[in-house]
């Protein structure tokens, strides 16, 4: 764990992000735009008085992040095709299942990214999170057999591993690597 940065400096990433959004919205980089952007972003952050956001652990692995984004886009498309096919299929859609999946990610930010990725990939929507017991509840659809239930569970674990590889803390990364060795 890194010591928590204190004071206004801790908000720098959020400030930068808001300024970038502002500049993109205006679609121009004349000096006035970033300057007003900084003023407005600072005012917004100051008035919102958000709680300190859950850090993503502060380590980005660019190559794995690219792998993660690539996989996510691919899976998003295949899942859209799957769900669309279910919508057209004659005879109505098949049933689903609510499955509980053990999660290993510890930080809130990581959990958020994992749950979001799960909801964008084929057949899954994350519906409930039990942080105390470290479980994520996922609705899978379509699910026709017990084997598909287990496939879904393994799939969610794989997505989480991918998220941890891309942005996880060194501890989380070690944990999943050891687990994979044991398998």
């Amino acid at each position: 764990m890194r010591p928590n940065k204190t004071g206004a400096l801790a908000w720098l990433p959020e400030l930068c992000w808001l300024v970038v959004v502002w500049v993109l919205l205006w679609g121009s980089v004349s000096p006035l735009v970033p300057l007003t952007g900084i003023a407005i972003a600072a005012a917004a952050l100051w008035t919102a008085r958000l709680p300190r956001p859950a850090p993503l652990t502060g380590r980005l692995r660019p190559v794995r992040l690219l792998v993660y984004v690539g996989d996510l886009v691919g899976e998003l498309f295949s899942s859209a095709v799957q769900v669309s096919w279910q919508a057209i299929r004659y005879g109505g859609p098949a049933g689903g299942a609510l499955v509980s999946v053990p999660i290993r990610a510890h930080s809130g930010g990581l959990l958020l990214v994992t749950a979001n990725s799960v909801s964008l990939t084929p057949g899954n929507v994350a519906v409930e999170l039990d942080r105390e017991n470290g479980r994520l509840f996922v609705h899978g659809f379509p699910i026709r057999s017990e084997r598909e239930v287990e496939d879904l569970r393994r799939f969610v674990v794989r997505i989480e591993a991918r998220v941890i590889r891309a942005v996880g803390s060194p501890q989380d990364l070690r944990a999943i690597e050891q687990e994979e060795k044991r398998r």
Binding site: Q82, S84, Q86, A87, I88, P93, G96, L98, L120, V125
Partner: peptide
């Protein structure tokens, strides 16, 4: 179409998100 045809909230969520 999925929103109309799917049977309940959870299945409709799939239609409302991915496609």
């Amino acid at each position: 179409l999925g929103l109309v045809r799917f049977p309940d909230v959870l299945t409709r969520l799939h239609a409302a998100t991915k496609p």
